[in-house]
C-alpha cells in the first residue's frame, strides 16, 4: 500500500436530517445507515477518503441542534468536537433551510476549528425554487461554502478541495458583515444572518 504524506481529520457536523450520513457515504464509499428522519446517527462513524497522496479521516458526528447538549446524541457531538481541536469541521447545512442550521453553525464556529460549509440538498432547494446566494453567504461567514447534493454526487470534489481552504472563523467579523458591512453587487441587498425572514438568535 502506498504511504500517505498527510492525514486530515474532518468532523461532519450539522442539524439532524440534513444529509450528513449520505454525504459521508458518498465521500468514503461506506454504508452508514441513512434515513429520511432525524436521529439516525447516535454514535460515531468513521471512514477514510484517499485522494492523490493525501488521506482524509472523516467522522460523521451525530446531528445536533445545539452544543449545549440535551440528549445523548448531542453529548457525543460536543465530546467529539472538544476532543479534536485540530480537526477541520465540515458544517453541513440543509440548502432548503439555511437559516435554521446557522444557529449550530455559529456555535461550532465559536470553537475556532478551521471550518467550511457544505450546502447540502442543493438539488432539493432547486426543485423547491429556493435560491441561496452562495457567494454572499461565503463572504459573510468568511469560510468556503460548497453547494452539494449527496444524492446526486454533486460537489464532492469541491468539498475535498475546500478542506484545504478551511478557515478558523472570526465571529466578530462575521457579526459585522452580517449587519451590513458586506459588499454586494450593485442593486443587491446584503444577506442577513439574523434572518430576513425574522428571528433574532440570542
Amino acid at each position: 500500500m502506498a504511504a500517505h504524506n498527510h492525514r486530515y481529520t474532518i468532523l461532519m457536523m450539522g442539524n439532524p436530517n440534513v444529509g450528513k450520513s449520505a454525504l459521508f457515504n458518498r465521500l468514503t464509499g461506506a454504508n452508514a445507515v441513512v434515513s429520511n428522519y432525524p436521529g439516525t446517527t447516535v454514535d460515531v462513524t468513521r471512514g477514510f477518503l484517499r485522494k492523490e497522496r493525501l488521506e482524509y479521516e472523516i467522522i460523521d458526528v451525530p446531528g445536533a441542534y445545539s452544543l449545549e447538549a440535551r440528549d445523548a446524541a448531542e453529548e457525543v457531538a460536543v465530546r467529539i468536537l472538544g476532543g479534536h481541536p485540530d480537526a477541520v469541521v465540515m458544517v453541513v447545512l440543509d440548502a432548503t433551510r439555511v437559516e435554521r442550521g446557522l444557529y449550530l453553525a455559529l456555535e461550532v464556529m465559536e470553537h475556532g476549528n478551521p471550518l467550511f460549509v457544505a450546502l447540502n440538498m442543493i438539488d432539493a432547494a432547486r426543485e423547491r425554487e429556493v435560491s441561496v446566494d452562495v457567494a454572499t453567504l461565503q463572504e459573510i461567514l468568511g469560510v468556503p461554502v460548497v453547494p452539494t447534493s449527496a444524492v446526486r454526487g454533486e460537489g464532492m470534489l469541491d468539498l475535498v478541495e475546500a478542506v484545504h481552504r478551511a478557515q478558523p472563523p472570526d465571529i466578530a467579523a462575521i457579526e459585522a458583515r452580517a449587519f451590513g458591512e458586506v459588499k454586494c453587487p450593485a442593486g443587491e441587498r446584503p444577506l442577513s444572518i439574523a434572518g430576513t425572514a425574522g428571528g433574532v438568535p440570542e
Binding site: 441542534y65 445545539s66 449545549e68 440535551r70 437559516e99 435554521r100 444557529y103 449550530l104 434572518g195 425572514a197 425574522g198 428571528g199 433574532v200 438568535p201 440570542e202
Partner: peptide, 23 residues
C-alpha cells in the same frame, strides 16, 4: 402568529428555530 417574546429558555427554543419575530 408571530413570536413577540419568550419567557422560557430562549436557547432551547432558538436552536430549534423558534425565535422572536418568527412566524
Amino acid at each position: 402568529g408571530t413570536v413577540r417574546d419568550i419567557f422560557a429558555s430562549r436557547h432551547e427554543l432558538n436552536c430549534l428555530g423558534v425565535r422572536v419575530r418568527k412566524h
